[in-house]
Write a protein that binds this DNA or RNA. Structure first.
Lengths: 343, 343
DNA sequence: TTGAAAGCGCTAACAC
DNA sequence: GTGTTAGCGCTTTCAA
């Protein structure tokens, strides 16, 4: 290792060190074009020796090509999104593309800012959670002229492509399972959701379908912040104090559901005989609980994979006909031990 | 909105639309230099009208300045890192800097690749988890000539700055708590850790300190993959079958610890009278459990904040003297309900 | 307060 | 197989 330098290395440095023209150095380093084995080696050695790292900024500007895919999600804390990211990342690993993550905190204004920032790097594609965006955000996405995949949800009008599940349908499915098992006094607990559109849609799907079965939600409560497990306990306790005759609790996510489950078991409730429970997401993390919470898988990984494939395809083919795809995945109900009332 | 275009917009388009020179348009859009209110408005309007998004690639190349901070972490699934990221992100929000996340999967080769990719975008700084890197990775970091902050750990030789806790010390502290409470038959459970250096250091700190107290680990088991909660249950059951006289179980993370705790409570074990437990990380998520697992906070958020501050400072001051800082945070032991043997 | 010229480090296109 | 030339879209610098 030589002493610290001020200027970072350029192609020219490698060119001089190897006695090969800049252009050929560039070709070697990118593995493009025919270069003789001899010069290839000379260049590789010189580059390694110097510790040269190419400047993608210059490369991207010159080639008008950026191997980045912007991925915009509401939160990293949510357990759900890291799994989507893994699907994206694994799929992109087989391509020259690289994901770049932006987080919006479920805040439309922040989404707009993040989107602006990311688009100003001229990525090759965008994967963004949800179908609801500000007008400005939609306009940017349209104007960007790159493939856009909206993920997690299919209930709405996509800008370009979309991959997800129907949360309305997921809510309906749960309602049907509830009706089939003759529950009648239903309590709902979830996040405060003015901005969590998917949780809202599930709730709507649930209530609409229950209504058709002649049942209304008997009690409901919304929370924000804090440890989900603890919130689940607290809300469940409070709700059952307030409305003791509930016979089913639907939670908008598995963590609060698990909190409720733990609380009820401690209280000695017979589950699901006295009271049934269900959550949402199919969080693998909870598989160690003594009782398996009924839940619905949101196909997180598959969504990530499919979205990445759409981007990869439309970048590779460099034509627009891969655009506008719409992929609806089917959430799978896992009844676990807390939903089906045994004989 | 006009019809779709092929070419993306440039400064020149805004210049023509507003009748102002490119240079002045650039000044307005960056908010630099004195521009009269009149032209400022003309330019702003034209830009908004067109839906112009500046090209940072060109800007970065011209100005030799990139407002990106590379953040390189082993995993997103780990619960630990999203919190570090939040610390970084919140701190950077008050600056022009933006974090870009790369994930290594605890794989040194992937770390090298990710690092290379990120450095090729010439970020203003790097935050990277851990002090252990391949020679090539270290060389790149040194050669990059930008501030580097290694986080999570301070047991080793940092390249530049570092912020973290001493995991060796954390292990020692736990050993001391174990000795003080007169536990003598200790079992250890953790991830297979050839590459999780921090878990390894904690283990070493633990065993060394216990040895001084005349105690050896009586049994140990390592896992990989799967639901941590479930693994914790299974391993605990297996270990107690194999070595029934254990009176303390130390888990290398809270999730497997929680799995063990749930299992033991189900079995009717009196905790901590019959057997004590402790985990590591201070995962907030578990606060809803009926019994609080003893754990040690790893100062995740603070680490993120401090690291981001170091980067922000040395970028702002644009001098090297902020370099080489070393910040050791102190992990706090939370005894919860599973460590201190009540009178 | 505004504009003109030069060039950031690389690659596309074409010559040799 | 290799080299030359001309930009990519911006910002820096300097002049007006």
């Amino acid at each position: 290792m030589t002493t610290g330098r001020k200027r970072t290395l350029t192609l020219r440095d490698v060119s001089e060190a190897s006695g090969v023209s800049e252009m050929t150095v560039s070709r070697v380093l990118r593995g493009k074009g025919d270069v003789s084995e001899a010069t290839r080696l000379k260049v590789r050695d010189a580059a390694k020796q110097l510790g040269y790292v190419p400047n993608q900024i210059a490369g991207a500007l010159a080639s008008q090509r950026v191997n980045l895919v912007a991925v915009i999600i509401p939160s990293l804390a949510n357990m759900v999104f890291p799994e989507v990211l893994r699907g994206i990342s694994d799929t992109l690993d087989g391509t020259p593309l690289q994901p770049v993550i932006g987080v919006t905190d479920y805040n439309p204004e922040k989404e707009e800012r993040v989107l602006y920032e990311m688009l100003s790097w001229r990525p090759s594609g965008v994967i963004v959670a949800g179908l609801e965006h500000s007008d400005a955000a939609r306009a940017m996405l349209v104007a960007a002229g790159i493939p856009v995949v909206e993920i997690m949800d299919v209930d709405g009008e996509p800008i370009d492509a979309c991959v997800g599940i129907s949360h309305r349908r997921a809510g309906r499915l749960m309602a049907e399972a509830i009706l089939e098992n003759d529950y009648t006094r239903i309590g709902f607990m979830g996040t405060k959701m003015p901005l969590d559109h998917r949780a809202r849609k599930r709730f709507e799907g649930l209530t609409e379908r229950l209504a058709k079965g002649g049942i209304e939600i008997a009690d409901q409560e919304f929370y924000s912040g804090g440890s989900a497990l603890a919130k689940g306990r607290e809300m469940t306790q409070a709700m059952l104090t307030r409305t003791p005759d509930l016979d089913f609790l639907y939670y908008s996510n598995d963590m609060i559901g698990a909190g409720g489950l733990i609380h009820l078991r401690e209280k000695g409730a017979r589950i699901p005989h006295d009271i049934g429970l269900a959550g949402f997401n199919g969080v693998e993390l909870l598989q160690g609980l003594p009782v398996q919470l009924a839940t619905m898988d949101a196909c997180r990984r598959e969504i990530g994979e499919a979205a990445a494939q759409i981007i990869a395809k439309s970048c590779a083919e460099d034509r627009e006909d891969a655009a506008g795809e719409r992929i609806e995945l089917q959430p799978k109900l896992t009844t676990g031990d807390t939903l089906v009332r045994g004989s």
